[in-house]
Write a protein that binds this DNA or RNA. Structure first.
Lengths: 120, 120
DNA sequence: TAACTGTAACAACGCAAATAGTACAGTTGG
DNA sequence: CCAACTGTACTATTTGCGTTGTTACAGTTA
């Protein structure tokens, strides 16, 4: 479920966009499934409609959703491809962080152990 | 060399703090080595001295440097311990990113291959 | 036609980052 | 001692961003 954390450093519209993107990537939202309307979600979260609109615009820009005037906003049809694109971003991040670790003196073997460690 | 990127999302004082911390971690700055004075660095970078002061305060808070009134700001004596602390932060980041990748469908084996791939 | 949808525009507010200027306090070398 | 350097503190101001509140327009649907 979508929730807003005011202590979160991210702005509200970004939390909403990230949350919905997560749900789409994880299959909680299905392709072509309709999102709650701008005004309805604004009511539910007690947030100004403009903020929701901005979140939806961000989602559309990320190609996670598409919007149709008068009808609503919907999850994109090709979530699979989006997941792959997202994964490739995360690969970059991973390699970036790994490089930083190596520069600070960690061995590649060490990194692998860190990834394989279980828990918490 | 320290440089400021105005397109960078991070505030200037943070860019400066990060940059100096990097140099300290990588041994470019030696323990007890003196940093440029607040006013001198402000001149060099064409930035207000207050911004530099804030960066130096941040560095002191991170225990990367220590300051002495009337004398100057200096790199901490125990850079080694700082390097280890920094490395443990990076470990957290690595495990965090790895978890995200797994949630999106990557296998742990896949992550290990990504880390071992030689850089593009 | 009424009630819903997305979209656009504008003013207002709060907040944090950054700037600007001034002042105070400690150290150092001549 | 003194001038010139160091860090530090404080206040006022500007700027940009996020959010709110409001109003309005355009398209869809029952």
């Amino acid at each position: 479920m979508l929730s807003i954390d005011l202590r979160d450093a991210r702005p509200i519209y970004e939390q909403i966009a990230d949350g919905i993107e997560q749900m789409a990537m994880h299959g909680i939202y299905q392709p072509d499934e309709q999102l709650p309307s701008v005004r309805q979600l604004a009511m539910e979260l007690s947030i100004n409609p403009n903020t929701i609109q901005r979140a939806y615009a961000e989602l559309e820009h990320r190609k996670v959703t598409y919007s149709v005037k008068g009808k609503g906003s919907f999850i994109s049809k090709d979530c699979q491809q989006l997941r792959i694109r997202k994964l490739s971003e995360i690969k970059k991040q991973l390699r970036n962080v790994a490089e930083q670790a190596v520069e600070l003196g960690a061995s590649r073997q060490q990194l692998i152990e860190w990834i394989q460690e279980k828990g918490e």
